[in-house]
Computed example of a mutant assay.
Amino acid sequence: MSDKKQGVAAKVIGGVVTLVGVWAAQKAVASAWKMVSGHEPPHAEDDDDSRLAEVIGAAVLSSAMVALARVLATRGTAKFLS
């Protein structure tokens, strides 16, 4: 496969794998949050009075899991295509 085609393939495969990884990370965070707290994590669209600490905690946990999923997807795709 030429370098140009491999670069395009890496971007497409990497994007798909990243989307799946991010989706799985969000589901894992929601499941863990519900198991620990007994309710769903707060969302931006929620009208209820979530405590600020709870909102910050959910944002930090979600961001960390999404960042980890992106790194693992990028590295895994690069390793798979090399």
Rank of each mutant, 00 (worst) to 15 (best):
V29K: 00
P41C: 10
A78Q: 13
S63M: 07
A10K: 09
R70A: 11
M35V: 12
V17N: 01
K4N: 10
A28M: 12
R51L: 13
W33M: 02
A44R: 15
S50Q: 10
A24C: 08
Q6F: 06
A30W: 03
A10W: 02
P42H: 06
L81I: 07
V36W: 13
A67G: 07
V55G: 02
Q6P: 02
G7N: 06
V22F: 08
P41E: 06
S82A: 13
V17W: 02
R51D: 14
A58T: 03
K79N: 04
R75V: 15
T74Y: 10
V60F: 04
S62N: 05
V29M: 05
A28P: 05
K11C: 09
L81R: 02
L61I: 04
D48V: 12
V71Y: 07
K27E: 14
V66Y: 01
S63N: 01
V12N: 04
S63Y: 03
L61F: 03
V60N: 01
A58I: 02
L72N: 00
V17G: 01
T18Q: 02
L72K: 04
W33S: 04
V16Y: 05
A67H: 00
K27Q: 14
L68E: 03
A25F: 01
K34L: 09
A44V: 15
K34M: 09
T74F: 10
M1R: 10
A64Y: 03
K79T: 05
G15L: 04
S63H: 03
V55C: 09
G76C: 02
D3K: 11
A25M: 01
A25W: 00
L19N: 12
V36C: 11
L81Y: 00
D47K: 15
